[in-house]
Structures are given as C-alpha cells and as structure tokens.
C-alpha cells in the first residue's frame, strides 16, 4: 500500500449517500403510508381555521318580545335605597299671621289651610313610593334569562360562560377615540394574546396582530389592562389559560 493511498485526502467509497438515500426513501414511504391510512380511515375533518368564539354574558331578566322596538342596553340600576332612607319632604309650617284680626259683621269664616300641608306631605310620600316603585320596575324589566348573571350585559347567552365574562369586562373598558375616521374603522382588526393566572391575574398581554392604527392598537391593549384582574377561571380552563392563554380579536 502506497503512502498516497493511505492519505486522508484520498477518495474512498463511503456508505453515507446510501444511508441518506435509504433514510429519505424510508421517510417518503412512511409519509405515503400515513396519507393512505389517513385517507382510508378518515375521521371527521378538522377545521384548522380558528372560528372566533362569540361569547356574551346574559343578564338576569326576562326575554324581550321581538315585535317590540329595541331598547338601548341598560346598566343594572344601583341597589334600591333602604325604606328609611327615602327622603320625605317635611311640609313647611303654615304662615302664622301675628296681627290680631278683629271680626266684623260681614266677615266670612276663613278656610283652614292646614290641609295643604298634610296634602303636600302625602304627595311627597306617594312620590317617594312611586320613585322606589319605578326603580323596582326597571330591575324587573331588564331583559335576560332566568339563570342569567347579575354581572351580565347581554340579553342572550352564547358560548363558554367564562369567556362571556371576559368579553363583558374587557368590552366595558374598550374605549377608542372617535377621531378615527369611518372608512378606517371598517378595516380595523387587532389581535391580542393574554395569559391569565389561577386567581384571575393578568400574567402578560401582547399585540399579536396589530391593526396598523396606533390609536386603535394602544386602545385594545389598554382595554385588557384596565379590565384586569379578572375573576378566577373555572377549574377546567385554569391550566390552558395559564399556559397558552386566550386571544381576543378586536374589531370596532
């Protein structure tokens, strides 16, 4: 054997190309087999496009008749005041004429005006009752569902309840400047990703798909931050909300 033949620079037959070729052929075969098996035993088709969850939290109340004209969504009124707190105006004391009147022959007896004060007090009392009655009526007339949530802001329930709650609290803080022009509003769409801890705390929030409008993008991030902390997520969502979080797509 010559020294040249022993050199490391000398070409020798190597098994590597054969190995790669066999490996590639093996993998291609595996993929083809997987496709064939998948085609033969195809299950229900999985739609990889994510469909946004439309979630709203229904409030406690009765459903509204579709034939009626719509009412604006009303905030739940503050709790009714306690009965003893209802202010009843005290009637002003009747004016007392201190001058002594001398009765004359033609003088007619004066009508006592004490009734007026009593009448005013009665009216005030009725007004107060009417006011508290109206407040009760508003509560009664709010539209929602029998098993609705007192924090609900919608007349209909849709989707997972916790996402409905997230929707409601973020939406309450979803303030955007009016100066964004109408034409631009139509194309605005921003996606935000957020992770929520077990106690409902906001772990992080980021803009995953900006809208291209700085005012709108900062408004949607601001809406999430202002809405936090949230209610503690239910047991079955706790892990996924902490690890992969939830995305919110904002459109005007």
């Amino acid at each position: 054997m010559t020294a040249a033949a022993q050199s490391l620079l000398h070409d020798r037959p190597t098994p590597l190309p054969m190995f790669v070729a066999v490996s590639v052929a093996g993998h291609v075969l595996a993929v083809v087999l997987w496709l064939i098996v998948g085609w033969l035993f195809a299950g229900p088709r999985v739609d990889l496009t994510q469909t946004p969850i439309k979630a709203s939290l229904v409030r406690l109340g009765k459903p509204r008749d579709d034939k009626l004209l719509p009412r604006k969504e009303e905030e739940a009124p503050p709790p009714a005041p306690k009965v003893e707190e209802v202010a009843v105006a005290t009637p002003a004391p009747p004016k007392v004429d201190t001058a002594i009147k001398i009765p004359t022959k033609d003088a007619k007896p004066e009508k006592a005006d004490k009734k007026d004060g009593a009448k005013d007090a009665k009216k005030s009392l009725f007004d107060a009752f009417a006011k508290s009655g109206k407040q009760g009526k508003v509560l009664e007339e709010l539209e929602g569902a029998a098993d609705g949530d007192v924090d609900g802001d919608s007349a209909k329930q849709e989707g997972e309840r916790y996402f409905g709650l997230l929707n409601a609290v973020v939406k309450r803080n979803y303030d955007v400047s009016n100066t964004i022009d109408e034409a631009e509003r139509r194309r605005l769409r921003a996606e935000v990703a957020l992770r929520i801890g077990a106690a409902g705390e906001l772990i992080d929030v980021s803009l995953t798909k900006p809208s291209g409008n700085e005012q709108f993008d900062s408004a949607v991030i601001g809406a999430v931050k202002k809405a936090a902390p949230f209610s503690a997520p239910p047991e079955h969502l706790r892990d996924s909300l902490k690890k992969s979080g939830v995305a919110i797509v904002f459109t005007p």
Binding site: F163, Y174, V176, V249
Partner: peptide
Amino acid sequence: LAQRPVIEISGANFRPM
C-alpha cells in the same frame, strides 16, 4: 402549535377625544 381560544369583541366605545 398550541391552539388558544379566540374571543371576538366588537362594539368599541368610541369616545370623543
């Protein structure tokens, strides 16, 4: 890739500047 649920929120409170 982990798929996260997507919530859609519309109806911004367009407030005057």
